[in-house]
Amino acid sequence: MSLLPRLPLADGIDAFVDWLKGIDGLFDVPKEFIGFTVTHLSNGLSAIPAWLFILLLTGLAFFATKKKFGLPAFVFFGFMLIENLGYWSDMMLTLSLVLTSAGISVILGIPFGIWMAKNKTVESIITPILDFMQTMPAFVYLIPAVVFFGIGMVPGVIASVIFAMPPTVRLTNLGIRQVSTELIEASDAFGSTPFQKLFKVQLPMAKKTIMAGVNQSIMLALSMVVIASMIGASGLGTKVYYAVGRNDAGGGFEAGIALVILAIILDRLTQSFNRQKGVA
């Protein structure tokens, strides 16, 4: 077995990382941008009084579910509980991290998905990369994130973006490819340009599937944001992380339940938006 010398894979990666770090602006620009976004988003969200935020979201849930009472009631009491337990500001921080990373995932993911759908070669290159991104243990992303961006919010967001993007890319690709040939032919036969075909036929037809991907991305971003608390992305995750460190079952449960409530609300809200808009 040991006839071959051990391959210096780890050394190679280290060298590559050093080389990347040497490039000016490659990491500073996204770092600035993400830092700016997260800070302002969380400041903005925190500036809203808790009671107003709760009322707004309850109302939103009420209309998103077409005036049913289940989800709005859950939103109302769930947020009241979080507020009561004193996790409100942590939750706002977590929410802004999730929204930022999910937002970036979607903004990057949908164009990649479209590109994959339009081009077979691109699809065959991106698919294994997506597989890699999804199967690599989530913790591993923390390392390069820290190496390139230090600790704090920004590497947390970066790691979350990498972890959360694949579903959006995959489902955008799938949604566009699933559009029936007859509709594509109809759009071509009436003389649509490729752009018109994309925006007037393919994307509207794929909307539901794409939204399912976006929903998945938000959920993954939430789970990654919690893990990212290990590298200093504060929020509810930090509370869980501390509780684990101190063997504090009660505190862990409280922070945990707050996360679960946030997750359920995000999930159901995005799902009901998806259902509401698909008329046909």
């Binding site: 007859e182 509709l183 032919e185 109809a186 007037k200 036929v201 509207p204 037809m205 008329v279 046909a280």
Partner: peptide
Amino acid sequence: FQKFGLFPF
């Protein structure tokens, strides 16, 4: 078209 090819949305 045979199956009409109408845009459902």
